[in-house]
Write a protein that binds this DNA or RNA. Structure first.
Length: 423
RNA sequence: GGAGAGGUGGCCGAGUUGGUCGAUGGCGCACGCCUGGAAAGUGUGUAUACCUCAAAAGGGUAUCAUGGGUUCGAAUCCCAUCCUCUCCGCCA
């Protein structure tokens, strides 16, 4: 969530920037500031009340010691009055705090000034593209046919075991999964990221801190008995490692890479978007996360973008990088780069990574702070990106590399797969 | 799952016949003294949030797992929840 101090000091800027995300924040900002003013007044009244109560308690103690029962009892009466007033004030304060907080969490993060205007996919700006789009001719097969032709991924079997969107990987398909995971994790480790294996289930506090709750409740699988959520991305447990921490400036940069399975209910999806590997309920992803000093978070974002570029390049896939427009960017992001690979039989671009700087938006909700060189406590910046998500990479690899002899594995992967062809 | 013990500041650890306890002490850390330099020694300081204040200083409030209760007053008493440890049971 946004920092309250920013709203107090520069409400106009907030309103102006949020308009880029097509949010009219005028009314909300006004209400927040009203609640804030009210809250502070109430707090002052309550504090004064409690101060007097504490004073009386001390005096009563002394009077009893001196045996002055009558005076002590008189003071007790005053204390009872204060207590009733304090209860009311305290309830009012809680209500105001809740009101303010509830309003504050409805405001998305401010988009970075470089964010393109617009709200449609065509308003996203392609800032880079690379690689040849292969001409596969007329007989090219989409990946969902290739997977059954070579018997490497079984969608129907997944339906039998669980349901749609839970494919079963077999033989060379399973091996390819392991190869990609190891390749991505190793590349991350080589780039200085600490490898993390997080839990795949998190508690309510964690889901709230990274913003999945309360908004995206229906997008997560939930274990009722223990009130745990299956993670939709490793971002959730990994970022939560740093929840409620007060870091030192020398702790930066924090760089983590984590492989995990991800679970998403994807309620409301349909059509060609969910065909084959395009959208699954369970999938594999390697995520990179950085916790950074605010002065260096944008440099870190560029680093992460370069890292992901390296991965896609080594896989020899044609790709492009988009800077997302305000309306297409996530609630929490300040600046996002999307990576898309071209899946040549489907003839469409598939998003395989989203690299974002959240600035202090997540850190504020999570209370992730650090002491700067002057001893002041400030919010850290958080960033994350997929590096990479497997299914669509697999879809593009299968489609783009299909030949009459089989499917060719890119050179960089061969040491991991142990084979050069899927046959 | 059953029985028991316990959760105090960055860490360890006092404090549980309720009373100036945000909390003795030690370690760690920071700065200073000492030293040619260091170690040892020694001195001082060392939580977080909110409010107040133009700012700093200062002041107020809250926080001893979390939430509630008793009381003029709670780290200390009561209740609930969460978590940790030990033993038993079960088990990859």
């Amino acid at each position: 969530m946004l920092e309250l101090s920013l709203l107090r000091e520069n409400a106009e800027l907030v309103i102006e920037r949020l308009a880029i995300k097509r949010v009219d924040a005028r009314e909300t900002v006004k209400k927040i500031l009203e609640a804030d003013l009210n809250r502070r007044e109430t707090q002052k009244l309550l504090d004064d009340n409690l101060a007097e109560s504490n004073q009386i308690a001390r005096e009563v103690g002394n009077l009893f010691k001196e045996g002055r029962q009558q005076e002590a009892n008189d003071l007790k009466a005053r204390s009872a009055e204060l207590k009733i007033a304090a209860r009311d004030l305290s309830e009012k304060l809680d209500a105001l705090q809740k009101e303010q907080n509830d309003l504050l969490v409805t405001l998305p993060n401010l988009p970075h000034p470089e964010t393109p205007l617009g709200h449609l996919p065509e308003h996203n700006v392609t800032i880079y593209s690379e690689g040849e789009i292969p001409d596969l001719g007329e007989n090219a097969l989409p990946h969902w046919e290739l997977t059954s032709k070579y018997d490497i991924i079984d969608f129907e079997l997944g339906v039998k075991l669980t349901g749609a969107g839970f494919p079963v990987y077999k033989g060379q398909g399973a091996r390819l999964q392991r190869a990609l995971i190891n390749f991505f994790v190793n590349e991350g480790v080589d780039a200085g990221y600490l490898e993390i294996q997080p839990p795949l289930m998190v508690n309510e506090a964690s889901a709230y801190a990274t913003g999945q709750l309360p908004d995206k409740d229906s997008q997560m699988y939930h274990a009722d008995l223990d009130n745990f959520y299956l993670i939709p991305t490793a971002e959730v447990p990994v970022t939560n490692i740093y929840r409620d921490l007060l870091l030192k400036e020398t702790d930066f940069p924090i760089k983590n890479v984590a492989y995990s399975q991800c679970f998403r209910r994807e309620a409301g999806s349909y059509g060609k978007d969910v065909r084959g590997l395009n959208r699954l309920h369970q999938f594999d992803k390697v995520e990179i996360v950085q916790i950074q000093h605010p002065d260096r978070s944008y440099a870190a974002l560029e680093d992460m973008k370069a890292h992901v570029t390296g991965l896609v390049r080594k896989l020899e896939l044609p790709f492009r990088i988009l800077r997302l427009c305000g309306g297409d960017m996530s609630f929490t992001s300040a600046l996002t780069y999307d990576f898309e690979v071209f899946s040549a039989a489907q003839k469409r671009w598939l998003e395989v990574s989203s690299v974002s700087n959240f600035e202090s938006f997540q850190a504020n909700r999570m209370k992730l702070r650090f002491k700067d060189s002057t001893g002041k406590t400030r919010l850290a910046h958080t960033l994350n990106g997929s590096a990479l998500a497997l299914p669509r990479i697999v879809a593009a690899l299968l489609e783009n590399n299909q030949t009459p002899e089989g499917i060719r594995i890119p050179k960089a992967l061969v040491p991991y797969t142990g084979f050069e062809w899927i046959k």
